[in-house]
Amino acid sequence: MSLDQQTELSPDEIREVLSRHETGVLSLAKADEPYAIPISYGYDGETGRFYLRLVSTPESEKRQFLTSSPRARLVVHESNDGSYRSIIAEGTLERVDPDELTVERIVQYGKAKRPLFEIWGETKRDLDIQLFELDPETLGGRAVELDAAESDQ
């Protein structure tokens, strides 16, 4: 497959992809140690901010990576109708203190649904759920038309 079948997504297309999904993979790093986790998010198309909910148990290794304001990369991707799209957002993850909640944040976190809770076999009381926001410094998306790639051979 040659690179010219890969196209950059426009800002509008990126917004559309991000709005129709609510899960992605968040990557963090500590020195040269990588760490990637599935997360659920809400995306505000107007401000371009992501509202993330991260779940961990007290002994979870995730904690080591959640320093005060870690660098992070969020990947959201989809594949349908013979095309593959991926979005990469990069920036600093900011922790949201529950005491600093606003109506706006409540609405945005309402969009970050909970499918990820189901993978934890514990009650919510025993989980440590933390809220974060990601205001991406860079946001890019690509599309690859798989059908075009095959007919090229």
């Binding site: 529950p98 909640l101 609405v107 976190y109 309402g110 970050a112 809770f117 759920i129 809220l131």
Partner: peptide, 10 residues
């Protein structure tokens, strides 16, 4: 909160 659910756990 009544409309959107708990902000922490939904």
């Amino acid at each position: 909160l009544l409309e959107n659910g708990c902000v922490i756990c939904s």
